[in-house]
């Protein structure tokens, strides 16, 4: 019986954590490059998912084309978000930039309402990944898709960041923007690139999250909060750690439900995050 419970913690934890983790990756990409918390991250997923759904309605999308289309749509959405928020206010206080992403999240929701209505919509499953069952371990196909997408995008992003010139420029910008500029790096372009990559990631995540929960105009904030929490646990900087933060958050929540009850889950989770932040080693100190 105990083994079954443990297996279920892993099953449910991964189902929750995969979504949190993939959201957290987008947060950390933007945060590490631009020191900005992007409140519109959930809405990037929403609009990315809805666009792909509409595209799938008019033409047959093979899995590869779907991946490419989602990436491209998200890339454009991310660029658009950058152009209307940070790109306009490069010298503003970080708080004003943060609040601009809040306004942008409202604009994105408004677009979703006008173009797709207020009813929840169910996007089709475009990636042919089956349910996985190994004894008591079970991964639903949406969870499996999310995990696979997250791992692949982490590897690709990791290679891009360490092996290419542009990737190194992006990392230089995130470590020290002034020094990077002095070395001839176009830091504004790097900021824009981080938004675009985060957008692409969110749209790809929509391929997994959309069929699991449906897409509705007001889903962004709930997803964004958990992604933000996961990114905080992971410490924002390393992609691997941030994704692990998401999985950890999912596992904690599942364990809380199974040992305590769903009633206390949220309270306990958020209290735990406060405690984690407060007792965490001093490396958080003096960080923006």
């Amino acid at each position: 019986m105990l083994a079954l419970y443990l297996a279920q913690i892993i099953n449910s934890g991964l189902a929750l954590g995969a979504v949190y983790g993939i959201m957290a990756l987008g947060f950390s990409l933007i945060f590490s490059a631009s020191r900005l918390i992007n409140f519109a991250q959930g809405e990037l997923l929403l609009l990315g998912g809805l666009s792909i759904m509409t595209l799938a309605g008019v033409m047959q999308l093979s899995p590869l084309v779907a991946l490419f289309a989602a990436g491209a749509a998200g890339y454009l959405l991310g660029r658009a978000l950058f152009a209307t928020t940070l790109g306009l206010t490069l010298r503003a206080s970080p708080l004003r930039q943060l609040m601009l992403t809040v306004a942008a999240s409202l604009v994105f929701q408004g677009v979703a309402i006008l173009a797709w209505g207020k009813n929840p919509l169910m996007p089709p499953r475009l990636l042919p990944i089956p349910d996985l069952r190994l004894g008591p371990l079970f991964l639903g196909r949406d969870t499996a898709t999310a995990l696979l997408l997250a791992v692949v995008s982490m590897v690709v992003l990791g290679l891009f960041l360490t092996r290419t010139r542009l990737g190194r420029a992006l990392r230089a910008t995130s470590q020290n923007a002034v020094a990077a500029r002095l070395q001839g790096v176009d830091t504004v372009f790097c900021h824009a690139l981080s938004f675009a990559l985060a957008g692409a990631l969110a749209s790809l995540a929509a391929l997994a999250v959309g069929p699991q929960t449906g897409l509705r105009y007001d889903m962004g904030l709930g997803l964004g909060l958990k992604g933000f929490a996961a990114a905080t646990i992971g410490g924002y900087t390393s992609l691997g750690k941030v994704f692990a933060g998401g999985i950890l958050l999912g596992l904690i929540e599942a364990a809380l439900v199974l040992t305590l009850s769903g009633e206390f889950k949220e309270t306990a989770t958020y209290t735990l995050i406060i405690i984690l932040l407060v007792i965490a080693p001093r490396e958080h100190d003096e960080r923006p």
Binding site: P94, T232, I273, L277, D285, R287, P288
Partner: peptide, 11 residues
């Protein structure tokens, strides 16, 4: 720091 304080107070 600012980001973490935002998260903590949000919690």
């Amino acid at each position: 720091g600012e980001g973490f304080l935002a998260m903590a107070t949000l919690c």
